[in-house]
């Protein structure tokens, strides 16, 4: 005797919800990663610019 697995509408709805939630979570992790890189790079650029100003301050105009 064989049992065939019948896919009900309920299973489809649950599957769509699980796939959707999975995609949202993966997207969020990727976004936080990229955002962190962007913030760190921006911060580094700002610090370098500040350091350069400290080493070679612009001459005050007469």
């Amino acid at each position: 005797m064989s049992f065939e697995k019948v896919e009900h509408a309920l299973h489809k709805r649950r599957k769509s919800r699980n796939i959707g939630l999975g995609a949202v979570l993966i997207g969020f992790v990727a976004l936080v990663f990229v955002l962190t890189i962007a913030k760190v790079v921006d911060e580094g650029d700002a610090q370098r610019a500040e350091q350069a100003l400290r080493i070679n301050p612009p001459k005050a105009s007469e």
């Binding site: 309920l10 919800r17 959707g20 939630l21």
Partner: peptide, 13 residues
């Protein structure tokens, strides 16, 4: 198999 609370699809959320 009718729609029950907790069994909505992603689109519903």
């Amino acid at each position: 198999t009718t729609t029950q609370d907790g069994d909505a699809g992603f689109g519903d959320f």
